[in-house]
Computed example of a mutant assay.
Amino acid sequence: MEAKEQKNGQLTKVRDMVDDIRVAMMTTVDEQGNLVSRPMAAMQMDENGTLWFFTKRTSPKVEQIDQNESRVNLSFADVSDADYVSISGTATEVDDKAKIDELWDPQVKAWFPEGKEDPELILLKVHTQMAEYWNSSSSKMVRFFEQAKAALTDTVPDMGENKKVYN
Score class of each variant (00 low, 15 high):
Ala3Cys: 13
Lys4Val: 15
Glu5Ala: 15
Gln6Tyr: 15
Asn8Gly: 11
Gly9Val: 11
Lys13Arg: 14
Val14Gly: 03
Val14Asp: 10
Val14Asn: 12
Arg15Ser: 15
Met17Pro: 04
Asp19Ala: 15
Asp19Lys: 10
Arg22Phe: 08
Ala24Thr: 00
Met26Thr: 06
Thr27Pro: 05
Thr28Ile: 06
Val29Phe: 12
Glu31Pro: 01
Gln32Met: 14
Asn34Tyr: 15
Leu35Met: 15
Leu35Pro: 07
Ala41Met: 08
Met43Ile: 04
Met45Asn: 06
Thr50Gln: 06
Leu51Ser: 13
Phe54Gly: 08
Phe54Pro: 08
Phe54His: 13
Thr58Glu: 10
Thr58Trp: 10
Ile65Val: 04
Asp66Tyr: 12
Asp66Thr: 05
Ser70Glu: 07
Arg71Ser: 05
Val72Gly: 04
Asn73Tyr: 00
Leu74Thr: 02
Ser75Gln: 04
Phe76Pro: 03
Phe76Asn: 00
Ala77Leu: 00
Ser80Val: 03
Ser80Ala: 03
Ser80Gly: 00
Asp81Cys: 05
Asp81Glu: 02
Ala82Pro: 00
Asp83Tyr: 06
Asp83Glu: 02
Ser86Leu: 07
Ile87Ser: 01
Ser88Leu: 02
Ala91Met: 03
Ala91His: 05
Thr92Ile: 08
Glu93Ala: 01
Asp95Trp: 08
Asp96Met: 10
Ile100His: 01
Asp101Thr: 06
Trp104Asp: 00
Asp105Thr: 10
Asp105Val: 10
Val108Gln: 04
Ala110Cys: 11
Pro113Cys: 06
Glu114Leu: 12
Gly115Thr: 15
Lys116Pro: 02
Glu117Ile: 13
Glu117Phe: 14
Asp118Arg: 12
Pro119Thr: 03
Leu121Thr: 08
Leu121Asp: 06
Leu121Lys: 09
Leu121Glu: 07
Ile122Val: 12
Leu123Gln: 09
Leu123Thr: 07
Leu124Gly: 07
Thr128Glu: 11
Ala131Asp: 00
Ala131Phe: 06
Tyr133Cys: 07
Tyr133Val: 09
Asn135Leu: 07
Asn135Arg: 05
Ser136Trp: 13
Ser138His: 14
Lys140Leu: 12
Lys140Ile: 11
Lys140Ala: 12
Lys140His: 10
Phe144Gln: 13
Glu146Tyr: 01
Gln147His: 14
Gln147Ile: 15
Ala148Arg: 14
Lys149Met: 08
Ala150His: 09
Ala151Asp: 01
Val156Pro: 09
Met159Phe: 07
Met159Pro: 06
Met159Gln: 08
Lys164His: 05
Tyr166Trp: 01
